[in-house]
Nucleic acid binder design. Structure first.
Length: 445
RNA sequence: GCCCCGUUCGUCUAGCGGCCUAGGACGCCACCCUCUCAAGGUGGUAGCACGGGUUCAAAUCCCGUACGGGGUACCA
């Protein structure tokens, strides 16, 4: 088999939104396929009729595309192979390799029986199922530890075990890369594959992604929806880069790098075996770095929707030229796009509300803040409205009083203790609004 | 309970018998820069779970113990 013959797949079941664990599995399959020049197949495992939510299928595709994970074949739907699955179960029953649950009949005398009875596979005794896992090495199970498992539900649908085995065989999948939570289902699936005369693919079980409690990430408990990260304005490149480093690391210690390099470096056999904690702090660092490296225009284009959607001001109030002017300063300060508006708010707002701690620390407790504001108000009344002049003017007022003067001014004008450099935006804000804010703040002291 | 898997700084990882008095990154701390907050720069903090082997030599190989996790559904 050459690398071009390698076929792997991502096979999600549409029972929920795409979450980071699934996305990581999809990514590793994709990285593996791309790194060896093989084929990446997308298959939707929609056999569980009750828990299926068809409306989520498109959403899953959309999230994959957003992440830049493209597929070469598919999407295929497991439900389309229903007849094939039914035939396999029937063959198993006829051959005596499986039996109907809650029924005396050993054979399928009428196919209707398959709509009312579950079917269990007759697990052979005294066998050892051994396979060479691409990431964990040799793993083996005794069939005597396996119960006769259900391959067909009484509602007339195949279970994951059967559908997965049949589909992987029929689609010529050579490598099944999936989460470690599926490791113990492997012997069952392999047994079924042998029953239908197929050669099982090479399995590669990825270490689980876990939370602080070291438990498998769960949709209920943990914050794991890819869609949520997207909404919050994480860049997909950062997300993918970070995800690629969970359970794997390049040998040259370079972490933040283009996906093409990751593809070139990726090696399935070097994937780790131990569970990995999904660390939001590190993701933020990756995202911040990617945002910082964005060209100004690209950053502005991506940030505009977040600015326009902010309900503190009308969308029309967001002037892209103005956004652009201070973009480089904002880029250095955000980890995700949803944080952007808070760095610009004081520029778009007519009046600002002074934050509680800024009021206390920056104004009321600041030394001579009242005199600073009085001095600046007076000086700003007729000085040239220029960045350098404003800067120097505030300094002079402070020097005359022997205190640091920029703090109170910043709090008065922006309502916050910290922010992007003050004087450039002040020029754009204008003399009138600036002085109004200084006067308003003066009242609080 | 039973089966399976795992264990390098707090976290993600490099390491695949000598290059390791264990490297990088995030975080944290300090300093520099600075109108603030950041960014950036510099430095620091902290780890091979434990016990036995094998070997001239072990983070790396083997066995055991402890701890953690996954599975044990007519979910996947």
């Amino acid at each position: 088999m050459t690398n071009q013959d390698i076929r792997c797949r991502f096979a999600p079941s549409p029972t929920g939104y795409l979450h980071v664990g699934s996305a990581r599995t999809a990514l590793f399959n994709w990285l593996f396929a791309r790194s060896v020049g093989g084929t990446f197949v997308l298959r939707i495992e929609d056999t569980d009729g009750d828990r299926n939510r068809p409306e989520l299928i498109e959403v899953i595709f959309d999230e994959l595309r957003w992440l830049g994970i493209d597929w070469d074949e598919g999407p295929f739907y497991q439900s389309d192979a229903r007849d094939r699955h039914r035939q396999v179960v029937t063959d198993l029953l006829v051959a005596g390799r499986a039996y109907l649950e809650d029924s005396d009949k050993n054979l399928v005398e009428s196919t209707e029986l398959l709509d009312a009875h579950a079917v269990r596979y007759r697990v052979p005794k005294d066998q050892t199922v051994t396979f060479n896992d691409a990431v964990r090495g040799e793993v083996s199970f005794e069939t005597n530890d396996l119960e006769d498992f259900v391959v067909w539900r009484s509602n007339g649908t195949p279970t994951f075990l059967l559908a997965n085995a049949v589909d992987d065989a029929d689609m010529g999948i050579t490598h099944a890369i999936r989460g470690e939570d599926l490791l113990s289902t492997t012997p069952k699936v392999q047994l079924l594959m042998h029953e239908i005369g197929a050669t099982p693919p090479t399995y590669g079980h990825l270490p689980l992604l876990v939370n602080e409690q070291r438990k498998k990430l769960s949709k209920r408990r943990d914050d794991v929806s890819i869609a949520d990260y997207r909404t919050r304005g994480y860049l997909p490149e950062a997300m993918v880069n970070y995800l690629a480093l969970l359970g794997w690391g390049p040998d040259d210690d370079i972490e933040i790098r283009p996906i093409a390099e990751i593809v070139a470096k990726f090696d399935l056999s070097r994937v780790n075996k131990a569970a990995a904690f999904f660390d939001l702090k590190k993701l933020d660092h990756f995202s911040a770095t990617y945002i910082q490296n964005l060209a100004t225009d690209a950053f502005v284009a991506q940030a505009m929707p977040y600015l326009q959607a902010d309900d503190r001001w009308p969308a029309e109030a967001v002037d892209s030229a103005l956004v652009s002017e201070f973009a480089p300063e904002v880029q250095k300060r955000v980890a995700k796009l949803s944080e952007v508006p808070d760095w610009y708010d004081w520029i778009f707002l007519d009046t600002v509300e002074i934050e509680e701690k800024a009021l206390a620390k920056g104004l009321q407790k600041a030394k001579s803040a009242d005199q600073v504001l009085d001095g600046v108000i007076a000086a700003f009344a007729d000085c040239p409205w220029d960045e350098d002049v404003l800067n120097q003017t505030v300094r002079d007022v402070g020097d005359a009083l022997g205190v640091k003067s920029a703090g109170p001014v910043r709090v008065a004008v922006t309502g916050k203790m910290g922010g992007i450099p003050l004087y450039g935006p002040l020029v754009r804000l204008g003399r009138e609004k600036t002085i109004d804010r200084l006067r308003a703040a003066r009242e609080y002291i």
